[in-house]
């Protein structure tokens, strides 16, 4: 914060100047604001204004052009919490988070541990494992659309080889959310892998050397050195994946369109439909506000409970 500390300039305040103007007193704040100005302007235009505008719109009904017309107070929110569809959408979102976040962190940790070994040609595998980072959501979804295709898809051919009956991955309400989750985990892998690998390589090698001298085995080292030293990285990955999972849109739009039977209608997709198909900006804005609060709460909880276990060097 802007604390006023006359000694911070390094000069002893002159006794001849007992009185300073307000302008002079607030000098540090002025300088700070000047430096912050570019980001303040950008944030105001692209974050703060839309945020407040959304909160404002959530209290209104909007007409067919999306302009607010009738003030309804908290009606939009009340209606949402009474609507089975919206509650289902929240449930689906949480399920989706549950399916994707732990799985992508665990799998990418596993891959990173493998790729961290010093072997010949390991760079090839590192590149392969990180490659989904370079694939856009749209391209990945279309590829998976082919994989999931009920008639010609690779996946169904594979399972029918083992005598399992064909599964209608994207049209069967029991499988659709799982199918979208698989796609998402695959998409997340590249990024998580790369960050975790970076974290692994930052761990001081002398720790391993000295523990080896003490006779520690691989798994003991993993548990006592690698995971604790990696915990800041893992925490970062978890937080980022969590927020990403809450905001998933592209895969849903391309793979299922929120169907079948609402089972993959995640919140952001529900918001999109209400806003841009139904042109119901009031309701959509209320959903946005709820999503915002949910992410805020979950992230705060994460910082409160999970971060305690994080070991910062």
């Amino acid at each position: 914060m802007a604390m006023e500390n006359p000694t911070s300039t390094g000069k002893v305040p002159s006794l001849n100047m007992p009185y300073r103007t307000f302008w002079e007193k607030t000098r540090p704040i002025q300088v700070a604001i000047l430096f912050l100005l570019p980001s303040l302007i950008l944030f105001s235009v692209f974050v703060f204004y839309p945020l407040f505008r959304t909160i404002y719109l959530s209290f209104f009904l909007t007409n067919q052009k999306g302009l607010p017309t009738v003030f309804v107070g908290f009606d939009n929110f009340i209606q949402l919490f009474q609507s089975a569809d919206f509650l289902q959408s929240i449930e689906a979102t949480f399920l989706f988070v549950l399916y994707t976040v732990p799985a992508s962190v665990v799998i990418s940790l596993f891959l990173a541990l493998l790729a961290n070994e010093k072997l010949k040609g390991i760079h090839f595998f590192r590149t392969i494992f990180a490659s989904s980072l370079g694939v856009s959501v749209a391209a990945a979804s279309v590829t998976w659309l082919f994989i999931f295709n009920p008639t010609m898809g690779v996946l169904n051919r594979m399972i029918s080889f083992f005598g399992i009956p064909e599964i209608n991955w994207l049209a069967d309400p029991h499988w659709a959310l799982l199918a979208v989750s698989i796609t998402t985990i695959w998409l997340n892998l590249g990024f998580s892998f790369l960050i975790i690998l970076g974290g692994l390589q930052n761990i001081d090698q002398s720790l391993y050397e000295s523990s080896s001298i003490d006779g520690a085995g691989y798994f003991y080292q993993l548990r006592r050195i690698t995971i604790p030293m990696l915990s800041p990285t893992l925490f970062f990955i978890m937080t980022v994946s969590l927020i990403n999972a809450f905001q998933t849109f592209g895969q849903i739009d391309l793979l299922t369109g929120g169907g079948p039977g609402q089972t993959t209608n995640l919140m952001v997709y529900a918001i999109y439909k209400d806003a841009f198909v139904n042109f119901n900006f009031g309701k959509a804005s209320a959903e946005v506000v709820i999503l915002f609060l949910l992410i805020l709460i979950v992230t705060l909880l994460q910082f409160k409970f999970v971060e305690k276990k994080v070991h910062y060097q």
Binding site: L145, P150, T151, A171, T256, P260
Partner: peptide, 18 residues
């Protein structure tokens, strides 16, 4: 047959005689 909302899957199903 149930192809959900995917018209592409449906037409490929038709073309592959499913």
């Amino acid at each position: 047959a149930n192809y959900g909302t995917s018209g592409d899957n449906e037409s490929s199903g038709f073309l592959t005689q499913k």
